[in-house]
């Protein structure tokens, strides 16, 4: 092709123009994201007694977080719920992404993706609340099943517990899981699958040996993009979780807005992020061999 592409890459003025453009959004992200995140970290080493803030650095909050079983339990539960939500979301999303990518005619793919993304853009609060309506004692689910004569009395294990939280969050994060997997599947050269079959593999083995490994980058992205934000969800556990379904975000909120113990809240936020961050890193490390394939 042309030798132009090797050109501007090294140009000094090119870099200067790039920096000039990116300066404002970068400054914004630094001031309103990086600095506050740093502040949270710093805050977590301070202490607060009602309204007086003690700025001596101490590990007191962390000690408390590790010794008080309430915090430990909340953190662990949040992690487990996030993992369950991630597994449920990604496993149910994969067939959808696969269906749209492989079986929907090209001209209708955009419409399917649009259909899948619409619910995501409608009020989150109201969606979560409606799950409460669906799963409630006199909810849509129970009344329907009773009306059909499948059950005699309402099921109670589906609301105000962890199950409800998982279902609701799996619903909320569905498009976040479907889209990256869909994009990865779309990139697969279809002749590779024919080659797989040509080389004597059946449909299932071709799927396992060709499609799945090539889709892995999308699956990994989906896992991360669902897992990380889920741990910080506040609305869902509060509305459908009941006392046993509460998560760490609810405690963070309580510390900040109710107990006036911002440093403790900050410490819990840091711990939650550290936990989710390390799990994410371990996950990336474990799946690294799938991600090495050239895009």
């Amino acid at each position: 092709m042309s030798d132009r592409s090797t050109g501007p890459r090294f140009g000094r003025s090119e870099a200067a123009q790039g920096y000039l453009l990116v300066a404002t959004p970068l400054a914004y992200a630094l001031l309103l994201l990086a600095v506050p995140l740093g502040a949270i970290l710093l805050f977590s080493f301070w202490t607060q007694d009602y309204l007086t803030l003690d700025t001596t650095l101490t590990l007191k909050n962390y000690r408390e977080a590790f010794t008080d079983p309430l915090y430990g339990e909340l953190l662990l539960r949040s992690l487990l719920i996030s993992a369950a939500v991630t597994a449920a979301t990604v496993l149910t999303a994969f067939p959808i992404a696969y269906f749209v990518s492989f079986y929907v005619p090209p001209e209708r793919k955009a419409m399917w993706i649009f259909l899948i993304t619409i619910p995501f853009w409608t009020s989150y609060l109201i969606r979560v609340f409606l799950w409460k309506v669906i799963l409630g004692y006199n909810g849509v689910f129970n009344t329907t099943l009773m009306g059909l004569g499948i059950i005699d009395e309402p099921l109670t294990f589906i609301l105000y517990n962890v199950n409800a939280v998982v279902i609701t969050l799996a619903h909320a994060y569905a498009p976040f899981a479907i889209l990256p997997i869909f994009v990865a599947l779309e990139k697969i050269d279809r002749t590779l699958l024919e080659a797989g079959r040509d080389l004597g593999e059946g449909y299932v083995m071709t799927f396992l040996r060709v499609t799945l490994p090539l889709a892995m980058p999308g699956v990994v992205a989906a896992v991360l993009i669902v897992f990380i934000p889920t741990i910080g969800d506040y609305v869902t556990p509060r509305l459908v979780g009941g006392p046993d379904g509460l998560m760490i975000a609810n405690m963070i909120q309580t510390q900040f807005l109710k107990l006036n113990n911002a440093p403790m809240g900050a410490a819990l936020a840091v711990l939650a992020m550290a936990m989710v961050g390390s799990v994410a890193l371990i996950f990336i490390a474990l799946t690294r061999r799938f991600l090495r394939a050239p895009r």
């Binding site: 092709m1 042309s2 030798d3 132009r4 090797t6 050109g7």
Partner: peptide
Amino acid sequence: PSGCGKTTLLRTIAGFE
């Protein structure tokens, strides 16, 4: 051949480089 600088020379004449 590609990479010999011919396009760069043309763009230099045009004023893009």
